[in-house]
Lab assay of single mutants.
Amino acid sequence: TTYYDVLGVKPNATQEELKKAYRKLALKYHPDKNPNEGEKFKQISQAYEVLSDAKKRELYDKGGE
């Protein structure tokens, strides 16, 4: 599973699309609303952290993490 899959976006997604997808999923899986989905929330946050940063995203796209 790639970070793009976690957020449900395509690899060519814009920053705005990433932000929108992250917010939607973060609300859905937030531990306050969904106590059993803490791990999913962490995955979503990690994916967004990497993909929202241009340098980290470039490194990730080249095969790094």
Results as ranks from 00 to 15, higher is better:
T1H: 11
T1E: 13
T1D: 09
T1Y: 14
T2F: 08
T2D: 09
T2Q: 05
T2A: 07
T2H: 06
T2N: 12
Y3R: 01
Y3K: 02
Y3H: 07
Y3V: 02
Y3I: 04
Y3Q: 02
Y3S: 02
Y4P: 00
Y4I: 01
Y4T: 01
Y4F: 03
Y4C: 01
D5G: 06
D5Q: 10
D5S: 08
D5R: 04
V6C: 06
V6F: 07
V6D: 05
V6E: 04
V6G: 01
L7Q: 00
L7I: 04
L7N: 01
L7A: 00
L7R: 00
G8N: 07
G8Q: 07
V9P: 00
V9F: 00
K10E: 12
K10G: 10
K10F: 09
P11D: 07
P11N: 09
P11A: 09
P11T: 09
P11W: 10
N12S: 13
N12G: 07
N12K: 05
N12D: 13
N12T: 15
N12R: 05
N12Q: 08
A13V: 10
A13R: 00
A13F: 06
T14H: 04
T14G: 06
Q15M: 15
Q15W: 11
Q15E: 11
Q15P: 11
Q15H: 12
Q15K: 10
E16D: 11
E16Q: 10
E16I: 08
E16Y: 10
E17A: 06
E17I: 05
E17H: 04
E17Y: 02
L18P: 00
L18M: 05
L18Y: 01
L18S: 00
L18W: 01
K19V: 11
K19T: 15
K19S: 11
K20N: 15
K20Q: 14
K20C: 11
K20G: 10
K20P: 01
A21W: 01
Y22K: 01
Y22W: 08
Y22I: 02
Y22C: 03
Y22M: 05
Y22R: 01
R23S: 14
R23C: 14
R23N: 15
R23E: 15
K24P: 03
K24Q: 14
K24R: 08
K24D: 13
K24S: 11
L25G: 03
L25C: 05
L25Y: 05
L25F: 04
A26M: 15
A26V: 14
A26Y: 14
A26I: 14
A26K: 11
L27K: 13
L27I: 11
L27W: 15
L27E: 14
L27S: 13
L27G: 09
L27F: 11
K28T: 08
K28R: 11
K28D: 07
K28L: 12
K28Q: 13
K28F: 10
Y29E: 02
Y29D: 02
Y29W: 06
Y29A: 03
Y29S: 03
Y29Q: 01
Y29M: 05
Y29K: 02
H30N: 09
H30Y: 05
H30I: 04
H30C: 10
H30S: 11
P31V: 06
P31I: 06
P31D: 07
P31S: 08
P31Q: 08
P31N: 07
D32A: 12
D32I: 11
D32V: 09
D32S: 14
D32L: 12
K33G: 08
K33R: 10
K33M: 13
K33I: 14
N34G: 07
N34L: 08
N34Y: 11
N34P: 04
N34D: 09
P35T: 07
P35W: 06
P35M: 06
N36S: 11
N36Y: 11
N36G: 08
N36D: 13
E37Q: 11
E37V: 09
E37G: 12
E37T: 12
G38L: 14
G38Q: 13
G38V: 14
E39N: 07
E39R: 08
E39V: 11
E39Q: 10
E39C: 10
K40P: 04
K40A: 10
K40Q: 07
K40M: 11
F41K: 02
F41A: 03
F41M: 08
F41R: 05
F41C: 05
K42D: 08
K42Q: 13
K42W: 07
Q43R: 09
Q43V: 12
Q43K: 10
Q43W: 10
I44G: 01
I44T: 02
I44D: 00
I44W: 02
I44Q: 01
S45V: 13
S45T: 15
S45F: 12
S45R: 14
S45Q: 15
Q46D: 10
Q46H: 11
A47K: 00
A47P: 00
A47S: 02
A47C: 03
A47E: 02
A47M: 04
A47L: 02
A47Y: 03
A47W: 01
Y48F: 11
Y48E: 00
Y48M: 05
Y48P: 00
Y48G: 01
Y48K: 01
Y48N: 02
Y48V: 01
E49D: 11
E49M: 09
E49W: 09
E49C: 12
E49S: 13
E49R: 10
E49H: 08
E49I: 10
V50H: 06
V50K: 02
V50R: 03
V50I: 14
L51D: 00
L51C: 01
L51R: 00
L51A: 01
L51F: 01
L51H: 00
L51T: 01
L51G: 00
S52G: 10
S52W: 04
S52I: 09
S52V: 06
S52C: 07
S52Y: 06
D53Y: 02
D53L: 02
D53H: 03
D53N: 06
D53V: 03
D53G: 01
A54P: 15
A54Y: 10
A54E: 13
A54C: 08
K55T: 11
K55H: 13
K55A: 09
K55M: 11
K55P: 06
K55N: 13
K56M: 12
K56V: 05
K56L: 15
K56N: 05
K56F: 09
K56T: 09
K56P: 02
R57E: 03
R57D: 03
R57T: 03
R57W: 02
R57I: 03
E58W: 06
E58G: 05
E58K: 06
E58P: 04
E58D: 09
E58Q: 09
L59V: 12
L59W: 13
L59E: 15
L59A: 15
L59T: 09
L59C: 11
L59R: 06
Y60S: 02
Y60P: 01
Y60D: 02
D61T: 03
D61R: 01
D61G: 03
K62S: 09
K62F: 06
K62L: 14
K62G: 08
K62M: 09
K62C: 09
G63V: 10
G63A: 13
G64Q: 15
G64N: 14
G64F: 15
E65H: 14
E65V: 14
E65F: 15
